[in-house]
């Protein structure tokens, strides 16, 4: 059985369309006990900042109906430690690494991209302009077409690596933001980041997470993500990478039919560390059974 699962995200060819979402897969080395992560199309790292970040106070997560709220606060080791301690191990494992980066200013985004540009083994950078859980920065870039275009253009100039921009579902004009990023030289768009939500403990009348609001993820957001990926992929020419509630191969197939070139598995990895592998295996079986290539699914949603 030779099933062709490869997809092209701009100039970057992925061996298959199954990636893991930033913030849900650590630095991928945590999976050594579970499976060989190099079989995946790629992994998106925890959001990297210039300096290490400790993250928000507890509680940081709360389960909600078929989903969860999180406000981790971008806890990460910092780009330097990533490059020296994590990346060599990922390189040795042959993992396709997409470095997710986060900053509060355009010059800091540029500095992160320049730092990663010097490293072997980074396949692309993904700009987190849509984190809902930090006091300052991130989402301001992601909800405004002008600001999103500005940061994308600056990073585009700073690196030879493909540049992906992670979209916020909170942008009033999602298509406008996507088009602005495309015009500024983005190679792909990732959609969607989490949706801000709130949960209150009725025993104590207090918010269930310290940050009060948190980003909603999990199966609960899948229909919203699917609709946004569908709309966005029709509005732009560059590839859209679908993310939001993907837990099974069927979810991934649905996302590709809606217009995604590749998908990211997120919260499902918390439920089962092997979730992304199972999505990949299921997708392979589906394509084999129908004698199609994975790329044949992209945007083939029948709308008549």
């Amino acid at each position: 059985m030779s099933v062709d699962l490869a997809v092209d995200v701009g100039s970057l060819r992925l061996k298959n369309p199954v990636l893991t979402a930033s913030g849900t897969f650590g630095y991928a080395l945590e999976y050594d006990d579970f499976f060989d992560v190099s079989v995946l199309g790629g992994i998106c790292t925890k959001g990297l900042s210039i300096l290490p970040r400790a993250g928000n106070n507890p509680d940081r997560i709360a389960e909600t109906s078929a989903g969860m709220l999180n406000a981790i606060g971008l806890a990460n080791v910092g780009v330097e430690a990533f490059c020296t301690e994590k990346l060599p191990n990922l390189r040795a494992r042959g993992v396709t690494v997409i470095a997710n980066i986060f900053a509060t200013t355009v010059p800091d985004f540029v500095a992160l991209a320049e730092r990663l540009d010097r490293e072997e083994g980074v396949a692309a950078v993904e700009l987190n302009v849509s984190c809902p859980n930090v006091d300052k920065g991130g989402i301001e870039f992601g909800v405004d077409p002008v600001a999103a275009g500005r940061v994308t253009a600056a990073v585009r100039k700073a690196t030879k690596l493909p540049v992906w921009v992670k979209m916020s579902p909170e942008a009033g004009d999602l298509k406008g933001v996507g088009i602005a990023c495309q015009e500024a030289g983005a190679d792909a768009l990732t959609a969607i980041n989490t949706i801000r939500g709130l949960s209150i403990d009725v025993r104590t009348w207090r918010p269930r997470i310290f940050n009060k609001t948190g980003g909603l993820s999990g199966p609960a957001i899948k229909p919203i993500a699917l609709r946004m990926v569908w709309e966005l992929s029709r509005a732009v020419k560059i590839p859209v990478i679908g993310i939001g509630g993907i837990a099974t191969a069927e979810d991934a197939i649905e996302m590709m039919l809606a217009g995604a070139t590749a998908v990211q598995v997120g919260t499902a990895s918390f439920v089962d560390p092997l979730a992304s592998k199972k999505v990949l295996d299921g997708l392979g079986a589906y394509c084999a059974e129908r004698n199609i290539a994975a790329r044949d699914l992209i945007g083939r949603f029948i709308q008549t």
């Binding site: 928000n56 507890p58 560390p273």
Partner: peptide, 9 residues
């Protein structure tokens, strides 16, 4: 198992 960072002490 150390990836969600949801259990800080």
């Amino acid at each position: 198992y150390g990836v969600c960072l949801g259990c800080p002490v």
